[in-house]
């Protein structure tokens, strides 16, 4: 009993790591006022880039670096669309997800002749636990940075009252660009963690909705770093539980349908948003295009 509990806990910590990376990415972007539905696509691209670079150069760290860069590049397309060209953030975010879904197999086909799985990374060239520690370090850094530094303040004002930021002489668009790019890197790192730590290769659509789950965690966490991390742990726990409960008979004669556990995080989010479990207020300028009059 204790054994399986410990197993579930360590598994929780592992599976919540990619979620937390992505959620932090979402937090960066959304606190600056830019909705980030594109987390899913950013993760996917990060997972792919991380896996193939780690495999090719025999280093998960290089894979990680490359993933971060790929995230920044994809996020740049998004940032240009919504910050400069006034694209609707939800529409453009959806498009970025589609772009990622299409580009990855396209490139995979060119590189490896297949659209599905990338070559397997040998066990000693994968991460064992480094990302788990790093993500919590990042969390603390972001927490203090938002609260205690001028640029953290800028990001918060960009999301809450961009006109005030502008009146203070700081470019809203610049701040948002920075936040969205950072967010892209973080989300991509989440994806890379998925392919270089939790598994041994990139597999088609391996993010499987984790980007959206990260978004849910961000809302559950009221757009604040520490509570968001707790939400990620909670969602990670349901995922760990689901792996653990597969085929297990809890009551009656049938195993618990896995679907019920799978939908839990989404259900929790709907209930939270409905104010049935706490209340969550988004940044005031979230989703709004900013232009100097």
């Amino acid at each position: 009993m204790i054994d399986s509990l410990l197993q579930i806990l360590s598994s929780t910590l592992r599976v919540s790591t990619p979620l937390l990376f992505a959620a932090l990415g979402g937090l960066m972007s959304e606190r600056s006022g830019v909705i980030n539905i594109a987390l899913e696509g950013l993760m996917l691209v990060g997972a792919f880039t991380g896996a193939i670079v780690a495999y090719s150069f025999h280093s998960p760290w290089l894979g990680w670096g490359a993933a971060a860069i790929s995230g920044v590049l994809l996020a740049a397309i998004y940032a240009a669309s919504v910050i400069n060209w006034k694209a609707d953030q939800i529409v453009a975010g959806t498009a970025i997800n589609m772009l990622a879904l299409g580009m990855v197999p396209f490139i995979s086909k060119i590189l490896y002749g297949v659209t599905g799985t990338s070559p397997t990374i040998p066990a000693d060239e994968r991460f064992i636990f480094a990302p788990i520690i790093l993500v919590w370090v990042f969390l603390l850094i972001i927490h203090f940075w938002l609260g205690r530094t001028p640029s953290g303040l800028w990001v918060r004002f960009a999301g809450e009252h961009p006109k005030a930021l502008d009146a203070a002489g700081i470019g809203v668009k610049k701040v948002r660009w920075g936040a969205v790019l950072m967010g892209g890197a973080l989300a991509a790192l989440g994806g890379a963690t998925l392919s270089t730590m939790l598994s041994s290769a990139y597999a088609r659509n391996m993010t499987a909705g984790r980007g959206f789950m990260a978004l849910a965690a961000l809302i559950f966490g009221k757009w604040r770093p520490i509570p968001t991390a707790m939400a990620c742990l909670l969602f990670g726990f349901t995922e760990a539980l689901q792996i653990r409960l597969q085929g297990v008979v809890l009551w009656g004669t049938e195993p618990v349908p896995v679907q019920f556990i799978q939908i839990l995080p989404y259900l929790v989010t709907v209930l939270v948003l409905a104010g049935l479990v706490g209340h969550s207020r988004p940044p005031k300028a979230l989703g709004l295009f900013f232009e100097k009059d």
């Binding site: 397309i77 400069n84 060209w85 694209a87 453009a92």
Partner: peptide
């Protein structure tokens, strides 16, 4: 989609 939505 990106081109259509990017009014600017």
């Amino acid at each position: 989609i990106l081109c259509v939505s990017a009014e600017g």
